[in-house]
Design a binder for these strands. Structure first.
Lengths: 364, 364
DNA sequence: CTGAAAGCGCTTACAG
DNA sequence: CTGAAAGCGCTTACAG
């Protein structure tokens, strides 16, 4: 840092110092086996000596591939709500009471697991991963222009934008439901997972009074999970409802509200099958607060397998999504698409796992 | 997808169609105010018509800046342990019992929060964020060459590599302790946070029998936190120990082990101040399992403020790190450095917050 | 406000 | 195994 970082060395500098052509320098990096050991050594020495790092942009431009994948995720947290100034400190510490009521977990591991899966698989294939929170149109020139393909979580990028991007580079959508033939899609087996959960409750716990606590009516995930619930009941010879008993918005606080509402209405079914973990945890909070026992009085189950589901009391029986695999599969699909642009639209469905824990009565 | 994605349109195609020069096309994107509305409209129409997306690599090469920041994080999960093949499914679901003993949370939000903070601040300044798990030397040419600067979590990238990179682009290290004058550093006020926590226990709960449960002896974070603990005791007129009572490795399972060991030794202090949340949660598990009551018999506190700390029973009193701010501050520092390469090495310390919850007795 | 032209730093056939 | 040369698609002074 003390030196002025003079001019960054380029292939030309390395070539000069090593006494070879720039083509040879390039080969040492990209096709080492096509270079004799002797010249390779000379080039390596020059590289080290100069502190040379190949320019990614020049490389991408010349090679006609960015060598990177874009990953776009939703602004789930209202991120754009204007972050304040950054405060630096020296010894001052704030102390504050932190009652549970005010707590809404800042997010779960879903996002970071998908990201990790994407990163792992991408780097296995020598691709970098560039991330972006979906904000507006800027994405389109800031991200789309610098990657070979894009992965996006469902309902993250406005359709119009996505269409523009897909005209340029392949796009893979994760979760939700297929958004048409212009994108490949990787999803989770919501239907089978919820059906298995439902039948488990009926068969292993002898419960026939089940109700579904849903999420937003326009969520395709919620739709599929409710469908699985209905299929499960049907398979057990129980007449399925045409609508969820209640709907929330997938948050824990809404779950609490729904739980309270059920108790107040004096009509709590023997089992509450919730459309996601956050809702289930909220329902759990509300039921326990009124003195009901889970699972003795009511069975409560979730869907997703977020971290909080395994540390709650009682621990939540749920369906785990293969989050990391979702990212990996998306990358795989993207790379196949890149290799064969004409292949028909792909749809990948990943298997889920029903985790039997305390809230259904499977574990003490 | 059905069309062959013929040849991707370039500035030349847009310029031709709009009847302007390529310089003008470029200006429409980069300096719109320097172009008359009329020609701008023509260019915009051509862009839409052709589905033009500017090439990021050509842009970066010409502009001499990548327009991206690299974020490097540790392979905390043993990621490279060979991921298996991806299984696609159709209706098959695995059911499995999931007892608590086998659970080690797959990670906490620390990483994803830092990532989010980085992303938010970077995009506010028009920079993309490219992420990478630290693996080996590949980072150096895959990531370092394509970004204008790099942010890395402490002890993530081998010193030799980091030095090579820092010769090329500025590097900001997050957490841990300063690694020399070649990098800027953003950290958290470990000392003040732990001191405040310690004094809180003494002053608000009248406890004078405190012990410190540490992490790895070579962790600078652990070192600072223990130092804060000692300073807190000293300030209260209590003779501080020279070493932690016990040391774990920052994992929950190690925490459990340490908790069991304490109980078996029959020597459990009135308050256990743990060096991080995972350790504290493990200690909590072990104590509760033997019938001890927290906080009535023993006070247990953590450090970090991970999600699990606010859903445990009892909820964990802890010191929250400003994770998202850490990322934001790192980006800020990086951009300032980019703007002024000669400025002296920077060190930023962010304030922490003591969260008073149930495990110290502050909330029922 | 607009255009012609040089140049950014690589990769990649093509020759040898 | 190695080199000369064209070209990747932009940005940016410089003129006008």
């Amino acid at each position: 840092m003390e030196n002025l970082m003079p001019k960054t060395p380029t292939v030309y500098d390395v070539a000069d110092l090593a006494g070879v052509s720039i083509a040879t320098v390039s080969r040492v990096f990209r096709k080492p086996h096509k270079v004799s050991q002797a010249t390779k050594d000379r080039v390596d020495a020059a590289v080290l000596n100069l502190g040379y790092v190949p320019s990614g942009s020049a490389r991408s431009l010349a090679a006609r591939r960015a060598g990177a994948i874009g990953l776009c995720f939703p602004d789930f947290d209202g991120i754009d709500g204007g972050p304040g100034p950054i405060v630096y400190t020296d010894g001052r510490v704030i102390e504050q009471l932190d009652p549970p009521e005010d707590v809404e977990p800042s997010g779960d591991l879903y996002l970071s697991e998908v990201m990790l899966g994407t990163e792992i698989e991408a780097w296995r294939h020598g691709m970098a991963v560039t991330i972006a929170v979906a904000r507006g149109d800027e994405i389109f020139d800031n991200l789309a222009g610098r990657v070979d393909g894009m992965i996006t979580l469902s309902r993250t990028v406005p359709e119009r934008l996505l269409a523009h991007i897909a005209r340029h580079i392949p796009v893979v959508v994760i979760a939700g439901t297929r958004a048409g033939d212009d994108y490949d899609h990787i999803g989770t087996d919501n239907v089978a997972g919820m059906q298995a959960m439902t039948q488990h409750i009926v068969e292993s716990h002898g419960v026939r009074d089940l109700a579904f606590v849903g999420g937003p009516a326009d969520s395709p995930d919620d739709h599929d999970r409710f469908e699985g619930f209905r299929m499960g009941l049907q398979a057990e010879g129980i007449e399925p409802p045409s609508e969820p008993l209640l709907r929330g918005d997938f948050t824990r606080s809404h779950g609490r509200m729904l739980g309270r509402r059920l108790v107040e209405a004096g009509r709590v079914p023997r089992a509450l099958v919730c459309s996601n973990d956050q809702t289930a945890l909220g329902v759990l909070d509300a039921l326990l607060a009124t003195g009901m026992r889970v699972p003795e009085d009511v069975i409560v189950t979730g869907f997703d397998g977020i971290d909080a589901s395994q540390t709650s009391r009682p621990r939540l029986t749920t369906v785990r999504q293969p989050m990391r695999e979702l990212g990996r599969a998306a990358v795989d699909t993207l790379l196949r698409r890149l290799g064969d642009p004409l292949m028909p639209p792909q749809t990948g469905t990943l298997p889920v796992t029903v985790l039997l824990r305390e809230s259904c009565g499977c574990l003490a």
